[in-house]
Design a protein around this nucleic acid. Structure first.
Length: 513
RNA sequence: GUCCCGUUCGUCUAGCCCGGUCCAGGACACGGCCCUUUCAAGGCUGUAACACGGGUUCGAAUCCCGUACGGGACGCCA
């Protein structure tokens, strides 16, 4: 039975690279008809775990990555919060001591530092001297008589090699001499990640550990412990980290200032920022960041686009296929086709996926998404009109928040904002503009029905009768009724607004000019 | 410093394990033309890469060695 897991720390945000790892775990489990477990790597010391966890769980739900056991839903192998599992870890630490695989270390930090420095100066690799190692009650008494406190350290092998197979990297061999006597339990009894991790994986019957490559070096010490404790050895797959745009550095949320110097990254960010402003979103600087999944959720990206993009971040099926439905990706996914090199986060590519998915998104769903953005922006929008605008805008709406580019269709006529530069250029500057517009307004007002084709026909007749070019009327008309220099089809725009609104807006523009 | 890893068009990548079908395929981006009331979109079309140096071989993106560059891990963090 395949069982995979993802174990986020409750940090308050979901990093795009983490989601990619989670997605691979999810896909692998689903591909094999197994289970995906969402375990929470919190610690005793953390406060407000629920609060910090909420955005993470919300991100998972939004992306459609459902879990079979874990946070909020429980399951037969819980508890799924590390903070509630301390007794299990302590029992494991005790067992390691019992079996001679770990020892009580009474060294002070100063003593250890001195040893490290000494090794460094002698240019030889540091290795714990085990001078303050206690393995018997007598040893312990002696050290404790000196007022020392202890931590529990692994008594790592000092010869031979650790060998394991990795679904991504192939066979991995590490000399045990490369390994330190790692601490597994602190003086206060709490345990460290590596121990907690193997205990959890054992208890939760995890069959495949799919995690970021930075954990590769944790693997030998984990294998040492789990074999000593008689646990099953899971299969491993270490997937490369997600790199920055155009570099090989690990993508980090803190370096956003740096990333904004990249034109493509900045474009992605500013687009989102404009939407957030128009929609009056209260965004936290902490999470309003294209490195964090929240960002996409907030400005109205489609989860399918994000997931499809993330899938190709380090995985590919062949040399052609790019688009995968959930079913297709579940069927096609395999660890063997995960690449070994870091994959760079590419904002352009992500936008391209978003474009594609938005294009095939059913109209009703787009209307639904757009409504929430209009709502937040404080615009009272009629559903039928939203639908018309979305239809007319077509693929100009790349993310749901883009509906706010067409806010002009949802404001009262006397509140329409004009693009001043366009207004000057099209209405104030050309000497004949006002007269033509006024004349055409009269022609439009006589029109019935007021449909896009009818408006277009009337315009053709008008330019012929007047002996003018299209350009002499079209631009002025667009600015007058939409306030903007650009937009979707002018005739559709007029038809959507209707005769009375168009006429009122033209009146207002004329008096203003 | 020690150990491990990576390097294919501007970008993301396929191909590498099992050498010839690769004068390297796809996508995105970019250029040109067409279409066009603006902005998009669409159609056609084009530019563009095996990090470098040796070796093995009839033949190397693919195998071996070295160099350069980049990265990751080296915690009483997770």
């Amino acid at each position: 039975m395949v069982r995979t897991r993802f174990a986020p720390s409750p940090t308050g945000y979901l990093h795009i690279g983490s989601v990619r790892t989670a997605l691979f775990n999810w896909l692998f489990a689903r591909h094999h008809g197994g289970q995906f477990i969402l375990r929470i790597d919190d610690t005793d010391r953390q406060r407000n775990v629920a609060e910090a966890l909420a955005p993470i769980l919300s991100g998972f739900r939004w992306l459609g990555l459902d879990w079979d056991e874990g946070a909020e839903i429980g399951g037969p192998h819980g508890p799924y919060y590390q903070s509630e599992r301390l007794d299990r870890y302590q029992a494991a630490a005790a067992a390691l001591l019992d079996r001679g695989l770990a020892y009580w270390d009474y060294a002070t930090e100063d003593e250890l530092r001195a040893e490290r420095q000494e090794a460094e100066q002698a240019k030889r690799p540091y290795r714990n001297s085990r001078r303050w190692m206690a393995e018997t009650p007598d040893d312990r008494k002696r050290f404790e008589a000196e007022g020392r406190t202890y931590v529990v350290r692994l008594k790592m092998p000092r010869e031979g090699r650790c060998v394991f197979d990795d679904h991504v990297r192939g066979r991995v061999e590490v000399a045990w001499t490369e390994e330190q006597d790692h601490v597994v339990q602190r003086a206060d009894g709490t345990v460290l990640y590596n121990l907690a991790n193997i205990v959890d994986d054992e208890d939760m019957r995890i069959s495949h550990v799919i995690r970021a490559a930075e954990h590769l070096s944790n693997t030998p010490r984990q294998i040492f412990m789990l074999e000593g404790l008689g646990y099953r050895r899971p299969e491993y797959a270490h997937v490369p980290f997600v790199a920055e745009t155009g570099s090989k550095n690990k993508l980090s949320k803190r370096r956003i200032g740096e990333y904004l110097k990249n034109p493509e990254f900045r474009k992605l960010y500013q687009h989102g920022e404009a939407i957030a402003q128009a929609a009056k979103l209260e965004v936290a600087a902490e999470t309003f960041n294209p490195v964090i999944v929240d960002f996409y959720q907030q400005v109205g990206y489609l989860p399918d686009a994000i997931v499809n993009y993330l899938l190709l971040l380090g995985w590919s099926l062949d040399d052609k296929t790019e688009f995968f439905s959930r079913e297709e990706m579940i069927r096609a996914f395999s660890l063997e086709r995960v690449g070994k090199a870091p994959a760079s986060f590419d904002p352009k590519k992500l936008s391209a996926f978003e474009d594609h998915y938005m294009r095939v998104e059913p109209l009703d769903r787009k209307v639904e998404m757009a409504m929430t953005f209009l709502d937040r922006a404080g615009l009272t929008a009629d559903r039928a009109r939203v639908r018309q605008v979305i239809e007319a805008a077509g693929d100009r709406i790349k993310v749901a928040g883009d509906i706010l580019d067409y806010a002009g269709f949802f404001v009262p006529d006397d509140a329409l904002a004009f693009d001043e530069a366009a207004f000057d250029k099209r209405l104030r500057t050309p000497p004949e503009a006002k007269a033509l517009l006024q004349k055409f307004q009269a022609a439009l007002n006589a029109l019935d029905p007021y449909t896009a084709p009818a408006v277009e026909q009337r315009l053709q007749e008008f330019v012929q009768a007047e002996g003018i070019g299209h350009n002499q009327i079209i631009h002025a008309l667009r600015v007058a009724v939409t306030g903007k220099a650009v937009g979707f089809g002018l005739f559709e725009s007029l038809a959507i607004l209707g005769k009375s609104q168009c006429s009122a807006r033209i009146d207002r523009a004329l008096s203003r000019a």
